[in-house]
Design a binder for these strands. Structure first.
Lengths: 330, 330
DNA sequence: CTGAAAGCGCTAACAG
DNA sequence: CTGTTAGCGCTTTCAG
């Protein structure tokens, strides 16, 4: 594999000049630069990234560690990050922690070892440990879920008030016994959405019976089981707030299993406007989160911090939007 | 940031010994090794990846370049690749080419420059150029879509015969005028599925009117437009074969816009068993592809080739399964 | 079993 | 504007 030295020899210059020419430094005689460039092209020269990174002590790579590649919410974030990063010449590598603190931990290690310029992370939960990152002053932006330590920028969604709003909507629509299917305790979004749900019931002077709440992993099969269990309980709810779109799939499957009509027998509002939300009958009411914008904002913050590490840490909170469709109307 | 030299000094040994101990070489006095390890822990030592990679002239990183992160088919492949790679200590970085040959090209360059150990690629189409890779003998496995050059392993699906089978099913169900909504010309899967569709019509001695075929990008909005156009044409079909699940969303939206009943007015079979396929009413008939297994097989082939570059190139073809549900029954 | 020393490919002082 | 040279942090001969 051709090295910069090969290019230099072929162009009849020193490696330093070759390097300068290849990197577009202005301080090179145009004629020499042209020779270098064509020599490089002829040899099919590709710079050696590790060598360059070692020497420069920096890389133009961002790591994006997300908790579930199969969730459209996170892939939208990924596109936001990617678009911003690409525009300024950074590459993005995507890592899937799969809601597993160990995998997350391993990817954080890899990111440190590869000396990425910065990390966008959706923490798996309270077990997330970013001490390594803060100790090393690796730029970090947390998305979707807050980090206990404030040593990072964060881009969040006002998920609690959105949950409250969605629940209030269900109340207004005349549902009497509203339940909630949410994610595991310890995941901020799961807890916040549950809290918002309770806020709404409290504001409406309703009791908030623990019997109407179920938790499971953020997965459709878990949500299916949880919903079946909930709907078979003596005090079956007549509406549900569901904490994400993956879970919504399980919930809707459960309704189908039990032959309950969406909207009429069971009002449903779910977080995340999945691509299929309007295909079910009646269409699914959702809390739409600005996933792409989250990714964009996160990448911008990260790049800003890479450029200037002394910036104050910020928390950006974006708004979610309730979109009411047929599934929450009788 | 602590280097291996700091660790060595703290442990009172040479960097060579520190390196050996850290890498678990057997030829180190256990007592010294222990000293090194604890020194490393105290200093929070993290190896410098670029330096190691530079010296070793190899990395334990695989690149996975897929054409659409938002398509569940590709994210399933990603999980397959990841599970196999993780198990043997390789990391996987995911790159989203977004069906764009330029982005794909850029990511291939990045992968070469970072000297990844190997690449799993779902080519964007005929424009894909892997000459750089073959010239450098970078191990490469193509998934989902064949590469013209045979200088790579491939893991494919018998998509043409699956398309034929699906179309034959629609014929058997009594649909008279079967159309096809597929992807852009030049993308092998789009062309193969169309070819399989034609195979079936020919086998049934039916004419294959070009009027019943529409192409668009592999996206829901494109498929929506294409379907509206198709269904507004004088010879509206009464059934459709749809080339992937992203397009299926657009097709189903179009049916809804035109107030056509799925199954009854318009039979539909789509490729890919998306998570939501059973939620629509009636449930969507699909051609289910073994995406996770594709990823697994691809990673295994890639690792085998990394270990032994002289292996013969292979093409693995997995089978897709037709799953008939309500959307293809009157 | 351990240490000294070389060198992976590149960039950035520093001279000229 | 160009060349020489040092060295990024690590692994790996090669001696001892």
């Amino acid at each position: 594999m051709a090295t910069i030295n090969d290019v230099a020899i072929k162009a009849g210059v020193s490696t330093a000049t070759a390097s300068r020419a290849l990197n577009g430094k202005s301080t090179v005689d145009p004629a020499l630069a042209a020779r270098v460039l064509s020599a490089a092209a002829e040899l099919g020269y590709q710079p050696n990234g590790p060598a360059r990174n070692l020497r420069r002590q920096e890389t133009a790579v961002l790591a994006l560690i997300i908790s579930d590649v199969e969730n459209p919410f996170f892939t939208s974030i990924a596109r936001g990050v990617e678009d911003v990063a690409q525009a300024v010449g950074y590459s993005v590598v995507l890592c899937n922690s799969d809601e597993s603190p160990e995998k997350e931990r391993r990817y954080i290690d890899v990111a440190i070892q590869e000396r990425v310029a910065g990390i966008v992370l959706s923490p798996t939960g309270t077990a997330t440990n970013v001490d390594l990152l803060t100790a090393r002053r690796t730029p970090l932006v947390a998305v979707d879920r807050a980090l206990p330590s404030a040593e990072a920028d964060m881009v969040l969604v006002d998920t609690r008030s959105a949950a409250k709003q969605a629940t209030t909507h269900l109340i207004t629509q005349g549902y009497e016994r509203i339940g909630c299917v949410t994610g595991p305790a310890g995941i901020p979004t799961a807890d916040d959405r549950l809290a918002g749900y309770k806020d709404a019931l409290r504001a409406a002077k309703r009791r908030t019976p623990a019997k109407l709440v179920r938790r499971s992993e953020y997965r459709s099969d878990g949500a299916y089981e949880a919903t079946i269990d909930l709907l078979n309980s003596p005090d079956r709810p007549d509406a549900l707030l569901v904490a994400n779109s993956t879970m919504a799939i399980g919930v809707l499957e459960a309704l189908s299993t039990l032959d309950l009509r969406l909207g009429k027998d069971m009002g449903v509002v779910a977080f995340d406007d999945a691509p299929w939300a309007q295909l079910v009958d009646p269409p699914l009411s959702v809390v739409s989160q600005p996933a792409y914008d989250i990714g964009k904002a996160a990448a911008q913050l990260l790049l800003a911090r890479i450029a200037n590490s002394s910036l104050a840490y910020t928390t950006t909170t974006l708004s979610a939007t309730l979109i009411t469709r047929g599934s929450s109307t009788r």
